[in-house]
């Protein structure tokens, strides 16, 4: 299992989403991608997209207005 961190701090929506989609393409099934975001809009569409794509998703608020979206590639 590999783990990759994607720094999207300071990036406005939809940049985090596009970066997440690209990063996940290069990962193998079972790998984990941690996306760091601080844009509230990305809080909505990144998990929404990842769940619809069938991956396992968790959100952690690491600080005020700063989140880590943990995505496990499921397929």
């Amino acid at each position: 299992m590999q783990e990759q961190t994607l720094d999207c701090l300071g990036e406005a929506c939809p940049v985090p989403l596009v970066k997440t989609q690209k990063a996940l393409e290069d990962l193998a099934v079972g790998d984990v991608l941690i996306v760091q975001i601080d844009h509230s809009c990305a809080m909505k569409n990144v998990p929404e997209w990842a769940r619809e794509a069938g991956h396992n998703v968790e959100i952690e608020e690491v600080d005020d207005g700063e989140w880590e979206i943990v995505i496990e590639k499921a397929k």
Binding site: C13, P14, L17, V18, S40, C41, M43, K44, N45, E48, W49, E52
Partner: peptide, 23 residues
């Protein structure tokens, strides 16, 4: 607007980007 994460931009952009149309 803030609590609902309501976004007019996302409502028109996300169908293309993610296929999600909830907004």
């Amino acid at each position: 607007l803030q609590k609902a994460r309501f976004c007019f931009t996302a409502s028109l952009r996300d169908p293309y980007l993610t296929g999600g149309t909830s907004l």
